[in-house]
């Protein structure tokens, strides 16, 4: 039962990373768009799906609360300011999305700023959170003692920038898949730079981990089989480079998605069996059986598959290039 909910949590977080990742990425790349027409096209690629994408954050959040209340309570309170700023960012970008169309042209910049700013704030804070987790929060006797700013460090800020770059890469490859001519070509030109920046970021993180002698480094060295995940990521990176060189529209997104899942898998499995690294394990955090079973026999077994089915149908309805015959815009 515990394993089931860990797996479902991991699946929900992965879905969230991929889906909201690309639309947050498009939100940040929006700042670099050259014309009003380009901006409209970029919005159209994510308009039908962003709201559903964001719902996966709530799904992950409530699974965490119901199945692992200790982790939910500890993480959200330890990351007080990052979580609040992330939520406000998500609100501002979600609303900006809609209000932009109805503002008078001379006031449209307000919503453009809030769309880009909100996307950036949400992505950055998610990265900071992951960074601080990897670095390790301060615990004493199983209780968080790091204080309100315990997450703040050069390393966590670096991870914030890193995730922004990663989401932007995902967003750019999404635009390549969904757009034609102008926007697609711009996005394709952005991918090599972003990909190299992400690579450089990963190397810096690696080096930083070695220098700081962080606990997570030892986990990797202790478990060589984990290198399967980085290896899969490396193969995906080669596929990405090849597809960019051959001007293929479909493969870049798939390749970047695999890189993301590989990175998430590397991270999650190297923490195993800890949920909050080296402080709280999965078993310690798990809710009592009565809670897990109650969730399993209803939402886990029946409703979750329906939700995934719905997302699949939704993406199928909106498949194809924006502005093409299959588009609904």
């Amino acid at each position: 039962m515990i394993l089931f909910w860990v797996a479902l949590l991991a699946i929900s977080i992965s879905i969230y990373l991929l889906l909201d990742g690309f639309d947050l990425g498009v939100g940040m790349l929006f700042a670099l768009a050259r014309s009003e027409a380009d901006r409209d096209t970029m919005l159209d690629t994510v308009a039908p799906v962003w709201d559903g994408n964001e719902t996966w954050l709530v799904v992950a959040g409530v699974i965490l609360w119901g199945a692992f209340p200790l982790v939910y309570a500890t993480l959200l309170s330890a990351f007080y300011l990052p979580v609040i700023i992330m939520l406000l960012g998500l609100i501002l970008r979600g609303v900006a999305f809609e209000f932009r169309h109805r503002a008078a042209p001379k006031f449209r910049w307000i919503w453009d700023v809030s769309f880009v700013g909100g996307s950036f704030a949400a992505s950055f804070m998610q990265g900071v959170t992951v960074g601080a987790l990897v670095q390790g929060l301060k615990f004493a006797d199983g209780v968080y003692v790091g204080g309100v700013l315990g997450w703040l460090s050069p390393f966590s800020l670096l991870c914030g920038i890193g995730l922004c770059l990663g989401y932007a890469l995902l967003g750019a490859s999404w635009l390549v898949q969904k757009c034609e001519s102008g926007v697609r070509d711009t996005a394709r030109r952005q991918i090599p730079g972003l990909a190299l920046a992400v690579l450089a970021f990963l190397i810096i993180v690696f080096a930083h981990a070695l220098i700081e002698n962080l606990p997570i480094m030892h986990r990797w060295l202790d478990r060589p089989y984990l290198f399967v995940f980085p290896a899969v990521g490396a193969v995906a990176a080669v596929v990405l480079a090849t597809s960019i060189l051959h001007h293929n529209d479909r493969w870049p997104f798939a390749a970047v998605a695999v890189i993301f899942v590989a990175a998430f898998g590397t991270l999650a499995l190297s923490f195993w069996p800890y949920m909050i690294p080296f402080a709280i394990t999965i078993d310690e955090a798990a809710a009592p059986h009565a809670s897990l079973a109650f969730m399993f026999w209803g939402e886990g077994l029946f409703v979750f598959p329906l939700m995934v089915l719905y997302v699949a149908i939704g993406y199928r309805v909106f498949r194809g290039k924006v502005g093409g015959t299959a588009g609904h815009h």
């Binding site: 409530v62 119901g66 200790l70 309570a73 809710a287 009592p288 969730m295 209803g298």
Partner: peptide, 12 residues
């Protein structure tokens, strides 16, 4: 959490 979490997860 063992009570409120599952209830609100059913809502979602």
């Amino acid at each position: 959490g063992p009570i409120q979490g599952p209830l609100l997860s059913y809502e979602t």
